[in-house]
Design a protein around this nucleic acid. Structure first.
Length: 722
DNA sequence: CGAAAGGCTCTTTTT
DNA sequence: GAGCCTTTCG
């Protein structure tokens, strides 16, 4: 099989450019996944590179799995030696192996968001601040952003400007202490500590540099500075680094993704070869055109011309409904119509939304209709209480110093250790400067209960818990994964505890399901299986769990939809305040990101797109009237089929508020309608794309025959109707 | 100490 | 509207 066959010239160029730095700018649907897998296959099969010497970073575990599957087909052989996975997973592996040099306990546990919050709350108290006054979430995000730029607490203290930043600096420092004490790393640590390890230990770095002859990174537009640094470090020796991305699809800046990475790439690697993939194989012509208009209206953007040989297809549909219930009803009804027309199956359809909260009404409609669906964030299996509890026990077995897990399960099932005792324990431990687990051990070892601020009964309970954890941790080294699992469930008393609960049976099922996941690691040596299980559990994402079911409609956030494609896509909540989200509307940068998000959504579609909005919608209890999304107005009218489900007539792009009607009146006869032909003294002839009232003026977007699409203010622009 | 009830806040996106 | 926290009572 010829690896280069069925690739277009640009794709082929991207695959064959194996020497030196390469930047592939790949528009949506341009065969990016093909290119990156074929590139690896080419390296192995044609160039003869040992898979061991290739690192391929993907954005999700799912993408990694898919790539592995494709490679298996292309190479009809083992690609096991390839380093393939997300940044986080790859870094966890590196730290587990080599982190000790930088003082990292190889038995570290990974703290997720919730764990972080609980450490932060505690840290806030410890530095004498009130968690109610300083939102732990805000501090978490500040710390995460700091870590993404490799800013340490000490740096932060130096550079802190505002009072809030000073607060963050103090909490950050304490937070780091607590993490260290628990032998825990948060998500950002996985990346940052790896970079630090490499900086402090050139010998370790060198081993990785020697090994990785080729480094490849997907979704490069969504990498942050640490990730960039990491790639730079590892690829420094051979400089065979290939990054693939699309600035127009950058939607994770809130997670510290930094578009400068793409821009700096050409600066850091002046000899970089740049390949543009502009032919779209995914969407029909009209969908692509509509999407292009949405993104073309972005303010800061390198223009890029996407084109396709696909059929023009059906125009995107813009639909208005009265409420979000009707919106959901429309979606379900329309899917039903398409499916019974034999055109598509339910599995071909996806419903995308800006916020998770929007999924509920949709779910209700699907349930009422009896139409099967899957909610991507809905499984959230690892977030169920009982599952988290057992994981907490397992984490303690891995690492008894994990204070968050200790606190979580010390009294589940109840052991008579209440809040008061826990507070005392915390204080006693920190007064002695020891981790809480160590404190428990000391309490257990001591004969004289008068040394502690606890009742004899509490002392007994605490000591009992410490003994149990200690015993289980002892077994880690020799017991198999499943033995360990069963031991935990028994010894903790969790099984009996569930047996006594009304919904105990259902929860027990979940434990068994978790046991099934653990079973996948049963062939690993003792200890390693547990480590692998915990790592997997910590680093899965919701999309990773997305499975293909032929008749089930996918309900998914726009963010999660990145990288996926569906024949039929519904984007709901096309309203100002939802998409773009109201939190982003005032900040031009964030607004641009919302636009890109919209673009990502539309470009997921192969055959059909529906852009749906509700006139009235419940938000936080009360009901609000929202205007149509401003992004709708960037799509030329002639490209869409629009209809209003609730009035029989569409009011799209007509001014809706009183002020606007007034303003529109003020502009008077100069008003333009989409579709009007106009003449501009400089740009020549064109067609009005949209007309929108802004403050005391109006903004007209015109597609000129020669000069392209321009955005003009009516008061300045010299245009007239022809 | 634990369960139940009431009151509070805040709502974006997630590896 | 929900989840989280606090309060209250047993």
């Amino acid at each position: 099989m010829d690896i280069l066959a069925d690739l277009n010239p640009a794709q082929r160029e991207a695959v064959e450019a194996i020497e030196g730095p390469v930047l592939i700018l790949a528009g949506p649907g341009s065969g990016k996944t093909r290119v990156i897998t074929h590139r690896v296959a080419y390296l192995v099969r044609v160039v003869g590179v040992n898979p061991r010497r290739i690192m391929a970073v993907t954005f999700t575990n799912k993408a990694a799995r898919e790539m592995e599957a494709r490679l298996n087909r292309l190479l009809s052989g083992s690609v096991k030696d390839l380093t393939l996975g997300t940044f986080h997973a790859i870094c966890a592996r590196i730290l587990r192996r080599d982190g000790q040099a930088a003082g990292i306990d190889p038995r570290f546990v990974i703290y997720d968001d919730d764990d972080q919050i609980s450490v932060l709350k505690k840290s806030l108290q410890e530095v004498g601040l009130d968690p109610k006054q300083y939102a732990p979430r805000a501090i978490q995000s500040a710390i995460s952003s700091a870590k993404s730029q490799m800013i340490t607490p000490a740096d932060y203290l130096l550079h802190g400007r505002s009072y809030f930043e000073e607060v963050v600096a103090r909490v950050y420092e304490q937070y780091e202490k607590r993490l260290a004490e628990s032998s825990a790393l948060d998500f950002d640590d996985l990346l940052m500590k790896t970079v630090q390890l490499f900086r402090q230990h050139p010998d370790v770095l060198q081993r990785y540099q020697e090994r990785y002859l080729h480094v490849q990174v997907d979704e490069f537009q969504d990498t942050n500075l640490v990730q960039y640094e990491l790639v730079k470090q590892i690829a420094a020796k051979y400089r065979n680094v290939c990054v693939v991305g699309d600035p127009d699809q950058s939607i994770y800046s809130w997670r510290s993704a930094d578009l400068r990475n793409i821009l700096n790439f050409e600066k850091d690697y002046p000899d970089a070869k740049v390949v543009l993939l502009e032919q779209n194989y995914r969407s029909t012509g009209k969908i692509l055109e509509a999407a292009s208009h949405v993104i073309a209206a972005a303010r800061h953007r390198k223009p890029k011309d996407l084109w396709t040989e696909n059929e023009p297809g059906q125009p995107p549909c813009v639909i208005e409904t009265y409420t979000e219930q009707e919106e959901a009803q429309f979606v379900v009804g329309e899917i039903d119509r398409l499916v019974s027309g034999g055109e598509v199956t339910g599995g071909d359809c996806a419903v995308m939304y800006r916020t998770n909260a929007q999924s509920r009404v949709l779910e209700e409609a699907f349930i009422r209709y009896g139409m099967p669906y899957k909610l991507v964030a809905g499984t959230r299996f690892y977030e169920r209480r009982e599952v988290k509890d057992i994981i907490a026990y397992l984490r303690l077995v891995q690492n008894p110093y994990d204070a968050v897990s200790l606190r979580r399960v010390i009294n589940v099932p109840q052991r008579g250790i209440g809040q008061r005792s826990l507070d005392e324990l915390g204080q006693w431990a920190s007064s002695r400067g020891v981790p809480e687990y160590r404190a428990l051990q000391l309490i257990a070892e001591s004969r004289d209960s008068a040394d502690f601020p606890f009742s004899p009964r509490t002392v007994k309970a605490l000591a009992g818990f410490a003994a149990m954890v200690g015993d289980l941790a002892e077994r880690r080294r020799e017991a198999s994964m499943l033995e360990l699992f069963d031991l935990v469930v028994e010894r903790s008393g969790y099984r009996q505890y569930l047996a006594g609960l009304v919904d105990g049976e259902e929860r027990w099922e979940n434990i068994l399901e978790l046991r099934g996941v653990a079973q996948e690691n049963r062939d690993l040596p003792p200890g390693e299986g547990l480590t692998a299980l915990l790592e997997k559990v910590a680093l899965v994402s919701d999309v990773d769990e997305l499975e293909e079911k032929p008749d089930t409609v996918t309900l998914i956030t726009l963010h999660q939809a990145k990288g996926l494609e569906f024949p039929v896509v519904f984007i709901v909540g096309m309203e100002d305040g939802i998409l773009p989200h109201f939190k982003s509307i005032d900040d031009p940068e964030q607004l641009e990101e919302e636009r890109r998000l919209c673009y990502v959504g539309i470009t997921r579609a192969r055959q059909r797109v529906y852009l749906v909005r509700a006139f009235r919608r419940h938000l936080m209890g009360s009901s609000a009237v929202n205007r149509p999304s401003r992004f709708l107005q960037d799509i030329p009218r002639h490209l869409v089929a629009s209809s209003s489900v609730w009035e029989g007539e569409d009011s799209w792009s007509t001014p809706s508020s009183v002020e606007e009607r007034k303003a529109a009146g003020g502009v008077g006869s100069a008003a333009f309608k989409p579709g009007d032909h106009v003449l501009h003294e400089q740009f020549g002839e064109g067609v009005v794309v949209s007309y929108r009232v802004v403050k005391n003026d109006a903004e007209v977007v015109v597609a000129f025959d020669g000069a392209g699409v321009k955005r003009l203010l009516l008061s300045f622009a010299k245009i007239e109707k022809v």
